[in-house]
């Protein structure tokens, strides 16, 4: 790593935030390395750099979309923001408070303000607990309200996510995937959180159900003034739902900016490749596509390429890309910064 402090945007001011507002979540130089151990003594022989120096802000009321392929580290970022994993380095501050410096007790009680919606609606609900108790559990944990108030609140939550009240007695396995995801959303909303990490909330659902859940998430955001980190690999859905979009590749941010900037004027070759890879429901457009947008596979995150991480697949890569890590710079002209980490962003745009 050639840059001191390595990683995207260590310094304030260049983290892709619209000017003015105080951020709800501030992430700086976040690193999450998972040790690779081998042999009888479980000696550490290396590390998978799932997240390797990532900085960004999330502003109150916005939806930040986070896209990337498997192995990009996008889910790990979401978990580190909620401190479901303990980052190797870097800081995450929520409402101005550094999560790492909180006592376990303080962290547990802070969790009522930040919640998560999971990808797999089958695995994320305890099969042995009826739905009413699942939705009620956060209220029990944080001792919110009296017993009857909690019951009323559960009823309210179920109707908010479009489930019948008699769902309370039934068990998760009695519901379809879409309904279970509604249960997961009701559970996440129970404590009136401000911030929600939605980790691929629709990718396990049937196509005809996805739009229902996306609409529900949008409605709830408007009604409750929520802030989302929306993690997904479906670019069209991310574009539909997000205000700003961050693109991750091999543990680093490649690009971050306003939705329209990132999708309509992508600066990073990876964003361009990703965008060009998306199939469209349009036979004419698809038939005219002549060659693959990007060759090769995502490298092993335990041995990421030196320099720019995309250089092994990038059609524009030069020597500098293979040696020096690109700086995280703002090339935006509008009010919202358009951040990119590419040596040649200006030249190839």
């Amino acid at each position: 790593m050639s840059r001191p402090g390595g990683g995207n945007g260590g310094e304030g001011g260049v983290n892709g935030s619209p000017t003015g507002a105080t951020p709800l979540v501030v992430v700086r130089n976040l690193r999450m390395h998972f040790p690779v151990r081998r042999g009888f003594l479980r000696r550490q022989v290396g590390a998978v750099r799932a997240v390797d120096g990532v900085s960004f802000d999330i502003h109150p009321g916005e939806t930040l979309g986070l896209v990337g392929e498997s192995g990009s580290g996008k889910s790990t970022v979401g978990r580190a923001l909620l401190r479901l994993v303990t980052p190797t380095a870097g800081s995450v501050a929520f409402q101005g408070e550094e999560l790492a410096s909180m006592t376990p007790e303080a962290l547990r009680s802070a969790r009522r303000h930040m919640q998560m919606i999971f990808q797999d609606p089958y695995a994320s609900l305890n099969p042995r607990i009826p739905v009413g108790r699942i939705v009620r559990e956060p209220l029990d944990i944080h001792r919110l309200g009296s017993a009857s108030e909690r019951t009323t609140r559960v009823r309210e939550l179920l109707s908010m996510v479009g489930l019948p009240n008699d769902a309370r007695r039934r068990y998760p396995h009695e519901f379809s995937g879409g309904q279970r995801q509604r249960v997961g959303i009701a559970r996440a909303l129970a404590t009136n959180p401000r911030f929600i990490v939605a980790d691929e909330p629709i990718s396990a659902l049937d196509v005809s159900i996805q739009a229902q859940i996306v609409n529900l998430l949008a409605d709830l955001k408007d009604a409750l003034g929520l802030t989302y980190l929306f993690i997904a690999h479906d670019l069209a859905m991310v574009r539909h739902l997000s205000d700003r979009v961050a693109v991750m590749y091999l543990g680093r941010l490649a690009e971050l900016g306003h939705r329209d900037d990132v999708f309509d004027h992508p600066l990073h070759p990876y964003t361009k490749a990703l965008r060009a890879s998306i199939p469209r429901p349009d036979p004419a457009a698809e038939a005219s596509r002549t060659h693959t947008s990007v060759e090769g596979d995502v490298p092993d995150p335990a041995h990421p390429p030196v320099g720019c991480r995309f250089n092994t697949r990038c059609p524009f890569a030069t020597d500098v890309c293979r040696h020096d890590e690109p700086a995280w710079r703002n090339l935006g002209t509008g009010r919202v910064p358009h951040m990119v980490a590419c040596h040649h962003a200006e030249a190839i745009e």
């Binding site: 690999h233 947008s293 990007v294």
Partner: peptide, 8 residues
Amino acid sequence: LDVTIQAQ
């Protein structure tokens, strides 16, 4: 598969 691999 990932979207870039799917395209391939």
